[in-house]
Nucleic acid binder design. Structure first.
Length: 421
DNA sequence: CTATAACTCTCAA
DNA sequence: CTAACGTTGAGAGTTATAG
């Protein structure tokens, strides 16, 4: 068995460039929600030393000096481009695992007699021509190695023109290459683990690959043991073609500006819960627990800080937005304290079960009417989400996040398509 | 005491 | 111009609690 991992090159920036060629060859960054931090940067922006997750307001001046173009994130656009990308790539194998908005694995079992590098080049050309997006491709015997091969393709450490195939390399070529790569580049090795490994003299990918898996399991975790085996070509990670239902659904967001009063918080919490409940119904599940959290801005320690969350068990599992909103607001009332500048609120649906298999409420004869939610979901599907909503979500929604530099919905909104004069 | 629930930490994109 | 630092989810491991 072998795997390919296909990954978009600075995906969000590339999506923007497809529809705005003036961004080509310039330093461009895309910002997180609320125009907070850098979440994607073009090669030119990276060269200028812009770091991932850098708070935007701190680098405003630097950006102005160097002509860096910043854009708010336009998730509608990226999600739509992602769907197109995944559809095109899915044609290249009967097995596809969509891992994130810009990444997927393809199962290449039975493709061994192919020239896989040429196959990868074909994918690249087609995606470039059909969608205008640049991608890189890593090919190897396990998912962890395919991720690493993709990294090598991106950084031009090995392979040719954005395609890197470890299977085709000799053992000594791989050893040589792996000795030059830091362990932190490996999928599953984050900041903590990298530091722990370094203390034991394990610095490079090659060091880790040669280390004793059982010992590492004892000293770290079973996860690291699997990683080591995967690096040695032993597949430990399965293929997830159909993503399992979520076990928890979270909806949280920072506000456009601080919120002080309960009524505004109530609107936000109701809105977040409506979103979460819609996703719950989409996967055909019910939730038995609702959690609400609010907090001030932890980056301003000189201001009074407050952070609190509360979980509420429901007497019966439900997917009814109105019922879930009532529970969330009940929890919010209990954790709200006046006198603080709230920066963020969130809700979570927990203890999720499949619809139809749940325990009915012993103490209540009230039943949800599924027709109401079905009608609401259909109306919002046709006319846009939020068209029909609970009054608790509010009208003005002044707390909504800021996105001051957002590009148009080029592929999803007729009204946003620029006119040609 | 064990089994499970609840919570914390880490990682990822 | 102001003031200003993301979101979502999984899984492992640890601690608390119930019986």
């Amino acid at each position: 068995m072998s795997f390919a991992l296909i990954d978009g090159n600075n995906f969000f920036v590339s999506c923007e460039r497809v529809f705005n060629p003036r961004l080509e060859a310039k330093p461009v960054v895309v910002l997180s929600n609320n125009d907070g931090c850098v979440v994607a940067r073009s090669a030119e922006a990276r060269m200028l030393g812009i770091k991932m997750c850098a708070p935007w307001f701190q680098m405003r001046n630097f950006a102005r000096q160097h002509g860096i173009i910043a854009l708010s994130s336009n998730y509608e656009l990226y999600a739509d481009m992602s769907n197109r990308l995944m559809t095109v790539l899915g044609e290249y194998s009967p097995q596809q695992e969509i891992y994130s908005i810009d990444e997927c694995f393809l199962g290449l079992g039975g493709f061994e007699h192919f020239d896989l590098v040429a196959y990868g080049q074909r994918m690249r050309r087609q995606v470039r021509q059909w969608l205008g997006l640049p991608i890189c491709i890593g090919i190897a015997a396990t998912k962890t190695l395919a991720k690493l091969a993709n990294h090598c393709a991106k950084k031009n450490l090995a392979g040719e023109e954005g395609v890197c195939d470890f299977i085709r390399m000799t053992e000594s070529e791989r050893s040589g290459l792996f000795s030059t790569i830091d362990s932190g580049e490996i999928w599953g090795v984050g900041k903590q683990l990298r530091e722990g490994l370094r203390r034991r003299g394990i610095v490079s990918v090659e060091n880790l690959r040669r280390a004793d898996a059982k010992t590492l399991r004892r000293e770290f975790s079973v996860v690291l043991e699997r990683t080591v085996m995967e690096l040695n070509g032993v597949p430990c990670l399965g293929f997830e073609e159909t993503p399992p239902n979520k076990q928890q659904i979270i909806s949280s967001r920072s506000f456009g500006s601080y919120v002080h009063e309960l009524p505004e918080l109530r609107e936000a919490v109701a809105s977040y819960m409506a979103r979460a409940a819609a996703r719950l119904r989409q996967q055909g599940s019910l939730a038995r627990m609702v959690q609400v959290s609010i907090r001030t801005n932890p980056h301003q320690p000189e201001h009074p800080q407050y952070q609190k969350e509360l979980s509420v068990p429901l007497s019966a599992a439900t997917d009814d937005s109105l019922r879930l909103i009532r529970a969330a607001l009940w929890a919010l009332e209990r954790i709200y304290r006046p006198g603080f500048a709230y920066q963020k609120a969130g809700v979570a649906l927990l203890d999720i079960t499949q619809a139809g298999t749940f325990q009915q409420d012993f103490f209540s004869n009230k039943r949800d009417d599924p027709r109401l939610m079905a009608a609401m979901d259909r109306i919002n599907a046709i006319w846009g989400s939020g068209t029909l909503r609970s009054a608790a979500e509010g009208i003005d929604q002044r707390w909504r996040m800021k996105r001051e530099k957002m590009s148009p919905g080029y592929t999803t909104r007729w009204s946003d398509i620029p006119r040609v004069h």
